[in-house]
Simulated scan of single mutants.
Amino acid sequence: MKNLNEKMHIILVDDDAEDRMIFEEAFSQLNSGNQLLMFQNGLEVLNYLNENETVPDIIFLDLNMPIMGGLETLREIRKNDRYRQLSVVIYSTSSAEKDIEDTLIAGANVYITKPNNFETLRDTIAKVIHVNWQFLSSGLDRDTFVFVT
């Protein structure tokens, strides 16, 4: 279990440089002290995960990316028992029911449609971090943690 003073290790995977920049700015305004790493596609983040012992607490994963998309990346993550407790947040422009359903079936814990304004993005990131922290600190089962906005 994580305690209140431990900082979270958070990753954003998104091929759009502007979306990464806006996400980073919203994240930094939270002043949480949590660590944010960013990658441009699923292959990059999988390489990072395989090369590092530290398992992140949350991955925000864009659904539609070149090289390796979000759904394929999610499936690869869920194949590895090492990442069983990792929260995966699909972060996409798509609000299609099929996309939401496919990602939840594949093992996503949270599905977020990218907000249209900065304040909503910042508040959504804060909410996901807070809800995730509750699960990390309580030891509840990740398999039952699903949140759709």
Rank of each mutant, 00 (worst) to 15 (best):
K2P: 00
N3I: 05
L4C: 00
N5I: 09
N5W: 10
E6C: 01
K7Q: 07
H9S: 13
I10F: 09
L12F: 06
V13R: 01
V13L: 02
V13A: 04
D14G: 10
A17G: 03
E18Q: 15
D19G: 07
R20A: 03
M21L: 14
F23H: 13
F23M: 10
F23W: 12
E24N: 12
E25F: 14
A26I: 12
F27I: 11
S28Q: 14
S28R: 15
L30R: 08
S32V: 05
G33M: 04
L36E: 02
L36Q: 02
L37E: 13
L37H: 08
M38T: 15
F39K: 02
F39L: 03
N41W: 07
N41Q: 07
G42R: 00
L43S: 03
E44L: 01
N47E: 12
L49H: 05
N50C: 00
N50F: 02
N50D: 13
N52T: 15
E53W: 06
E53R: 10
T54G: 00
V55D: 01
I59S: 00
I59D: 00
F60L: 02
F60D: 00
L61F: 09
D62E: 09
L63F: 09
N64R: 12
M65D: 06
M65E: 06
P66N: 13
G70F: 02
G70P: 02
L71R: 08
L71P: 02
T73K: 03
R75M: 14
R75L: 06
I77Y: 08
R78Y: 07
K79T: 01
K79R: 14
K79S: 06
Y83Q: 07
Y83M: 08
R84P: 01
S87R: 12
V89L: 04
I90Y: 06
I90V: 15
I90C: 07
Y91P: 03
S92H: 12
S95H: 09
S95Y: 12
E97D: 14
K98V: 11
D99S: 13
D99H: 11
I100F: 02
E101W: 02
D102H: 10
T103Q: 02
A106T: 06
A106V: 04
G107L: 04
G107K: 03
A108I: 10
Y111Q: 10
I112A: 08
T113G: 04
P115W: 13
N116C: 08
N116V: 12
N116I: 09
N117L: 05
N117K: 05
E119M: 14
D123G: 10
T124W: 08
T124V: 07
A126T: 03
A126Y: 06
A126P: 00
A126W: 04
K127W: 05
V128M: 06
H130G: 08
H130L: 12
V131F: 14
W133Y: 05
W133H: 05
F135S: 11
S137V: 11
G139P: 05
G139Q: 13
L140K: 14
D141L: 06
D143S: 15
V146Q: 14
V146N: 11
V148C: 13
T149Y: 13
T149V: 12
